[in-house]
């Protein structure tokens, strides 16, 4: 038996109320109920990182969080952080450096990279790789992704412009 449960949460700044089946994961709720299809479903057991979203300000696996647990929570997806312009520099750097091909992993990569760069420090390449270790890319390899994240970290720290660090 699983009765639908009423939840109210903020998604990308908008208040959302819905009745959700307890077994519905957060990423399925975002995609199927709210048509926010930027968060992707990959492995569905926490390994690949394609479903990464922000929950109350911290990145989580959308496939390892139940929608029903998000009552009263603040959720941000790639759509939200794209529209707000918060990660415009990261997106630009990914595009400039060909840090994606099919793009399936990219929303998760961007949200993970954004959390890493939140402190304003410039992480080492090893630290970037370690932070992104939970996000699989099956197209590019990771070199261009690490390049893009490093370039943005440097640019934000005023070390060198994103455009110059090519």
């Amino acid at each position: 038996m699983s009765t639908a449960v009423e939840v109210t949460l903020m998604v990308n700044g908008e208040r959302v109320s819905a009745a959700v089946e307890p077994r519905k994961t957060l990423v399925d709720f975002l995609r199927e109920d709210l048509a926010l299809t930027g968060s992707h479903v990959g492995c569905e057991h926490g390994v690949c990182g394609a479903c990464t979203v922000r929950l109350d300000g911290a990145i989580v696996r959308g496939c390892l969080t139940l929608a029903v647990q998000c009552d009263g929570a603040v959720v941000e997806t790639i759509e939200g952080v794209s529209d707000s312009g918060e990660i415009a520099d990261l997106q630009q750097a990914f595009e400039r450096r060909n840090a994606l091909q099919c793009g399936y992993c990219t929303p998760g990569m961007l949200l993970t990279a954004a959390e890493l760069l939140k402190s304003g420090e410039v992480p080492s390449r090893e630290a970037i790789r370690a932070y992104l270790s939970g996000n699989y890319c099956r197209c590019t390899g990771y070199h261009a992704i690490v390049d893009a994240v490093e370039a943005v970290a440097r640019a934000r720290a005023g070390q060198v412009g994103v455009g110059e660090a090519q």
Binding site: G46, G49, T52, L55, A58, I59, V60, R61, L64, T65, T112, E115, L116, A130, Y131, S133, G134, N135
Partner: peptide, 12 residues
């Protein structure tokens, strides 16, 4: 602790 999974999983 740093060996446990990945940042998104450590957050939760």
């Amino acid at each position: 602790l740093p060996h446990i999974a990945h940042p998104a999983i450590r957050n939760r």
